[in-house]
Design a protein around this nucleic acid. Structure first.
Lengths: 181, 181, 181, 181
DNA sequence: AATGAATGAGCGTTCATTCAT
DNA sequence: TATGAATGAACGCTCATTCAT
């Protein structure tokens, strides 16, 4: 594993456990097995480390999403199953997503918003053509998925997140009208 | 206005403007027109101040909710209109809700979860009897409303939040099945 | 002694012993008998503390200078005796003056230059009317005095600085022409 | 140009621009076109690099001084003209001299003092035999020259330093008595 | 000789909270 | 109750130096 990967792995654990503000760069370094200063050779600072983490997490998520949407239908079902399945298998990533995505630091929030944009676009692509305002529909889809992830995280991962997919997608399909996808 | 109310008002402004971590107790005191130490005569500390704010905000919200649900139907429509109308008229409260509700501090998060519980119960009451898993349905309703509030806050209040209510409730009604309420 | 005075006293010792860059705010606080944060209640930061020190040191110096010039003549002799006598009795102030007055930090240097200006003006007042370019003369007077202080500081205070005054002023008087003051 | 010379050249620029404390070894290496570690093959560390710079600067200065003193008289005039002319043509060297010669780091200061010794000896040789204490006279000569260089550096090189030589040496000659050289 | 990735000690400053008045 | 001066623990980041290659 490269040093950069070690640091990102460590950062995932530390940010998930302590949150952005509670996370200590020293602990990231320690858990990555590098010196404090080494982290700064790979990332400009705490914020860039966090944003990188988020960015790569979403990039990996999106990379798999395309396959999932291509190989299964209806697209909405595939999306729900993928979203819940992906995060349901990555508790720490889910925690980071839930806890930190809505952040009070304006620059950080702006960066995270930018990163999420491509996912929102995919969702809008999926709901386009349904009998629904595309933005409201997108917010419904994302909000519903996200709120279920939140509940799962709040429960400490106490149930199988992926098992919610059928009911979630059934309701969403019904919401968006019978024959849009 | 009592001193306690002054402090809570000031805290609303400060927390909304700067977020929980960015907020300074000194500024709360200053804006409330009291000395630094005085805040601690009314609230145990920063966290309790924030939680109190949140608690009272939700209590007021819930107080009006009952009337709204009683005076209009279907209940789901009333709920959506009320949620979006209430926060759409209280930008700072909406900011606080969105930005800070999912928080990394475990104790704080736990407290906020406890506070939200009664609202979740009302929503579950509204969706009970529908053809849907009650918890998933509740998460869909809240997640959808919440995500629309988030979008509104992100836009800086750039549109009329309440105007989304018809479309939001149309989709939610359809999701939950024709004849549940 | 007020807290502010304690801090300035401590700062004098610490800056003299370690220089600006070597000085530690923690040690200033410790020697002043206050907590780290207390220093920042009285001074905005390290630089302002240093500049304040310098400023007050020069203000006190200038306050006495007027009396000295008024009560003895020729003015040039009075000036030399006062300069060498004053710093000769204040080793730490002399160290700070010598070591730190020409500083590489541009903002700091600018501030120190501004502070010195009034003294330079007095010197120019003393040499005005002599058969000499007033600026060059001022630089000669100050440079000569200053270089003798430097030598004294370099020697660790190993001789009586004030005892140089007669020879210094004799040479300076001769330099500036017989009958200017 | 040898690597060592490249490094010294780069160091001159960097130290002059940023001062000793503001200078970064990395930038010296970068400007010299070598790797960070390479600097340490030629100089033990930052301090030795700075001292070497100073040492060679003064050595070159002194090498020319002998010729100047030999070829022109009176010696004092030659000295002044040479000092002001030399530094007036080497702004960066002048900056380094002014800003850093009186330094708070005790070891560094001691080293710089040792390096200056030969120049002081030459000056004392020039003023020996005058009607003046030789040390006080030397300090007057050096202090006057140095203070004029300081003023020139403070002005950002805004006038011709060498043009001050006639007035400076006129005053110094007068100070030291008519017939010493 | 040369490289440059890695090190890790070190520090100015902030701010929630306390407590003597 | 109210004050606000005082506290002091806590932390992100820098940078001179090292050393395996």
């Amino acid at each position: 594993m490269t040093r950069e990967a070690s640091i990102l792995n460590a950062a995932t654990r530390v940010f998930a456990a302590a949150g952005y503000h509670g996370a200590r760069m020293r602990q990231v370094a320690r858990e990555a097995g590098v010196a404090d200063g080494t982290v700064y050779l790979y990332f400009r600072g705490k914020r860039e480390l966090f944003v990188s983490l988020f960015e790569r997490g979403l990039a990996a998520f999106l990379a798999g999403l395309d396959d999932a949407l291509a190989s299964s239908s209806p697209a909405l079902d595939a999306l729900c199953a993928y979203h819940l399945g992906y995060l349901g298998a990555r508790y720490e990533l889910a925690v980071i997503t839930q806890v930190e995505m809505r952040h009070s630091d304006p620059e950080l929030r702006e960066a995270l918003g930018r990163i999420m944009r491509p996912y929102f676009d995919r969702i809008e692509g999926v709901v386009a053509g349904c009998d629904a305002d595309v933005k409201v529909a997108r917010r419904m889809v994302f909000g519903t998925l996200d709120e279920n992830v939140t509940a799962w995280v709040r429960s400490g991962g106490g149930f199988a997140l992926a098992s919610l997919a059928p009911e979630v997608s059934r309701l969403l399909r019904r919401a968006l009208g019978g024959d849009c996808r």
